[in-house]
């Protein structure tokens, strides 16, 4: 049995806990033993992306320490995964934690890539009879190179129809603090994305990044759109026994 440690991003912990719970359920169903290290807080990405590398560094070092005992680390956010895998080497270059960080980077996985590429699962027995479109979260796609894994998982879901947006790979406009530093730009980008989901005729837009879904949910509800958001983990957690309705952000 594979032991995995949950990497629950700080904002998921506080704002979207069900995504974390759903991910844990799915991982268990995939045959993993799931741990949650309560010492974890934030990976440091908000400070890093805002240029406060001095403030991000101690958090990165802390993260590396907390997870050093984990065999595999799984995260429901491509962006937070990318922070550890792709940006820690920059951030921690020349510090004593650099080596340990490099080793950790190889054991940190985004949720869908872990299921497909490590656990070897594409059908988890989920059921979600809806038209769903997949939003390629920027860091999942372009920093981690994950494009097919989430789609393969979605195709394995009973009753689910996967429809593609013409602008599936376009940014939703969230961008962390960008969303509140430049709210007008961020929201306009979100509108463009939301319109793409509507045009695709989807009932749900799903993704591997809760932050994108936070943005899209906020935009879609303001537009009074019929389209709702749901995290990939929450789709995969649904079984036929759960009935048909529900999305995490209703």
């Amino acid at each position: 049995m594979k032991e995995v440690a949950l990497f629950i991003p700080c904002f998921v912990d506080q704002l979207l806990p069900e995504i974390g719970m759903d991910m844990a359920r799915v991982l268990q169903r995939a045959g993993c033993a799931v741990n949650f290290f309560e010492e974890q807080t934030c990976c440091g990405q908000p400070a890093f992306n805002s240029g406060y590398w001095q403030d991000a560094r101690p958090l990165a070092e802390r993260f590396v320490r907390v997870f050093s005992r984990a065999e595999a680390v799984v995260c429901p956010s491509g962006s937070c995964t990318a922070m550890v895998r792709r940006f820690y080497p920059d951030l921690l270059a020349g510090t004593p934690a650099a080596e340990e960080a490099k080793r950790l980077a190889e054991r940190v996985f985004e949720f869908s890539e872990f299921l497909v590429n490590v656990a070897g699962v594409t059908d988890i027995g989920a059921s979600f009879p809806h038209r769903v479109t997949y939003h390629d979260a920027c860091h999942t796609l372009r920093e981690l190179g994950i494009r097919e894994e989430p789609r393969r998982l979605l195709r394995g879901v009973r009753g689910l129809t996967l429809v593609e947006m013409a602008n599936a790979e376009e940014c939703c406009g969230f961008g962390g603090t960008f969303s509140t530093k430049f709210p007008m730009i961020s929201a306009a980008m979100g509108e463009t994305k939301a319109a793409g989901a509507e045009r695709a005729g989807a009932e749900y837009v799903t993704s591997t990044d809760p932050s994108c879904l936070l943005q899209l949910d906020g935009i879609l509800r303001r537009r009074k759109s019929q389209v709702r958001t749901i995290h990939l983990a929450s789709i995969l957690a649904r079984t036929e026994a759960d009935g048909t309705n529900s999305g995490n952000q209703e």
């Binding site: 309560e38 906020g218 509800r221």
Partner: peptide, 25 residues
């Protein structure tokens, strides 16, 4: 305000993930 001017806020959950986890695990 800088969020809600053009977007809705999510429903704020009662419990954090860690609280839920403690309850179940």
């Amino acid at each position: 305000r800088r969020w809600t001017k053009a977007r809705e806020m999510p429903e704020i959950p009662r419990h954090s993930f860690r609280a839920l986890w403690r309850k179940t695990h």
